[in-house]
Design a protein around this nucleic acid. Structure first.
Lengths: 209, 209
DNA sequence: GCCGGCATACCACGATCGTGGTAGCCTTAC
DNA sequence: GTAAGGCTACCACGATCGTGGTATGCCGGC
């Protein structure tokens, strides 16, 4: 197949071994061409500008910034960019953020290569690719109210072990207001107390440590 | 180089892409030979029995059991097994457990391939390989008292959002005793409250969600 | 313009947590 | 066999948390 007809691919991952694994998978496909690789978000943006690949495989966790942020940066410049998030496994919050930010696919590194390749072709053809196990994760918490920006800020403070009183000082609000936020957080996450709220938020990828 | 003289290697990782990346790295080395691969702990044990490799590269997180448990199982049968843990990144607790259980090396997937290969040769030669960044993690909490088995059990219950009263019922002890354990946990981890204790324990790999 | 959601604030009360001290029992180590 | 560490238990008290209700100002959507 001529290089012009092939699916031109950019991979972004900070693990050299993983990059090599992806590269090997793509090299084995006659209809695909690996045009560039990047190890972090900034590199991803630069490589994208240089090569404008048909499909980009982006790791969610990167050293300098989130892969989702890198995707947002790329898509603000190239709105038609077809980007597939590739991750070991995150909670539904990461998936939601990625799709909301315009990801065309969300695949797991634990999936068999055949699945991944099919996903790349699917996305290249202009369709989306959300495998069943990912969709299930997403469906799990569909319809539930999302945390507001303020609640998220409070939750991060709670996760740091701060008391309501301290959180109030840090956010320049009263302790009573903090309590209201904490109460809402626990309601939305279905937690019995603040500790479980933090555990659930971590498991779902709503916050990171 | 003859196959007999080569370093015979077994890789264990549940991500096909990562396995492929490792395989590619090893194949590029004249003095190494990839004799088998496994995707989970049980497979690792079976492959080890069949091939008795010189060096085993073992992922810490596996679908069926911890890579450390798999290593313990292998080493109970083959005490001389030279096993290198390979992980994306975990806290010091994982590193400690792995080394205590007899791992000969602890390497990160983010390390350049040259480092990994050097580590494999080092371990094959009978030495240990703990890269500086891993050693630093380990040193960070050296000398600090480790949690006891009971404290660990209580901590897991705390992370699940249980109240002291409920934990007492679940562990068949009194609430007062639970309080003592929680107090000790917070002291040892340097946490201001139970929530921070859970956050710290998760970050350090002492517990998982 | 009105409504709903969000963030803010205050009050009061019961539940839960964290701290201090004391102490018995058991196992392991020296 | 004695010491040390770990697990258990009880008491008391102050700090903090979680819950209920009420209320104000703001903003974006219908």
């Amino acid at each position: 197949m001529s290089d012009q007809a092939r699916i031109r691919i950019l991979t972004v991952d900070d693990h050299p071994l993983m990059r090599e694994g992806i590269a090997a998978m793509i090299r084995s496909q006659a209809d695909m061409l690996l045009v560039a690789q990047a190890a972090d978000g900034d590199g991803a943006i630069q490589r994208f500008r240089e090569h404008q690949p048909d499909v980009t495989l982006m790791d969610v966790r990167l050293p300098d910034r989130s892969g989702i942020d890198a995707m947002i940066a790329i898509r603000s410049e190239f709105p038609e960019a077809r980007i597939v998030m590739l991750t070991t496994f995150e909670g539904d919050a990461e998936i939601q953020r990625a799709l909301r930010a315009g990801a065309r696919g969300y695949m797991l590194k634990s999936m068999p290569p055949g699945e991944l390749l099919a996903g790349i072709r699917e996305v290249h053809a202009g369709r989306k690719r959300i495998p069943p196990e990912v969709a299930a994760q997403l469906a799990e918490h569909m319809g539930e109210e999302a945390l507001t920006a303020r609640e998220l800020g409070v939750l991060k403070e709670v996760a740091a072990g701060n008391r309501n009183r301290d959180i109030a000082d840090r956010l320049f609000i009263t302790e009573e207001t903090v309590k209201v936020h904490v109460k809402h957080i626990m309601e939305k996450l279905g937690a019995k107390d603040r500790t479980e709220a933090v555990a659930i938020a971590l498991r779902r990828g709503i916050i990171q440590l």
